[in-house]
Amino acid sequence: MLLSPSSLSTVVARLRAAGCVFAEDEARLLIETARTPDDLAAMVDRRVAGLPLEYVLGWAEFCGLRVAVDPGVFVPRRRTEFLVRRAAALARPGAVVVDLCCGSGALGAALATMLGAAEPYTAAVDPAGAPACGVDRVEVHAADVDPAAVACARRNLAAVGGRAYEGDLYDPLPATLRGRVDVLLANVPYVPTEEVALLPAEARDHELRVALDGGADGLDVLRRVTAEARDWLAPGGVLLSETSDRQVPAALEALARGGLSAEVAACEETDATVVIGRLEAAG
Rank of each mutant, 00 (worst) to 15 (best):
M1V: 12
L2G: 11
L3P: 05
S4V: 00
S6L: 14
T10W: 00
V11T: 11
V11H: 10
R14G: 02
A17M: 02
A18E: 05
F22D: 15
A23T: 03
E24K: 14
E24T: 14
E26C: 02
A34M: 08
R35P: 00
L40F: 08
A42S: 14
M43H: 03
D45G: 03
R47V: 02
R47I: 02
L51F: 00
L51A: 13
E54K: 04
Y55I: 08
E61L: 10
C63E: 15
C63V: 12
L65W: 06
A68F: 06
A68T: 15
A68V: 11
V69I: 15
V69N: 07
G72H: 04
V75Q: 04
P76R: 12
R78G: 02
R78M: 07
R78A: 14
R78N: 04
T80C: 10
P93F: 04
G94W: 02
V96M: 13
G103V: 07
G105I: 06
A110Q: 08
A112L: 07
G116I: 08
A117R: 12
E119F: 06
T122F: 09
T122K: 05
A124K: 02
V125T: 14
P127Y: 08
A128V: 03
G129R: 11
R137E: 15
H141E: 03
A143Y: 01
V145Q: 08
V145Y: 00
P147Q: 06
V150K: 12
C152P: 07
G162W: 08
G162S: 10
Y170R: 12
P172Q: 07
P172T: 09
L173C: 09
A175G: 12
R180I: 01
V191G: 03
T193I: 01
E195T: 06
V196Q: 10
L198W: 07
L199P: 11
L208N: 10
V210R: 15
L212K: 08
D213H: 04
D217Q: 09
L219D: 06
V221P: 06
V225R: 12
T226A: 15
R230D: 08
D231M: 01
L233G: 06
L233C: 04
A234D: 02
S241A: 15
S241P: 02
T243E: 03
T243H: 09
P249Y: 03
A250V: 03
A251W: 02
E253P: 00
E253D: 15
A254E: 05
R257K: 14
R257L: 13
R257Q: 15
V264F: 01
A265L: 13
A272G: 09
V275G: 09
I276T: 09
G277T: 11
L279P: 02
E280M: 05
A281F: 00
A281Y: 00
G283Y: 01
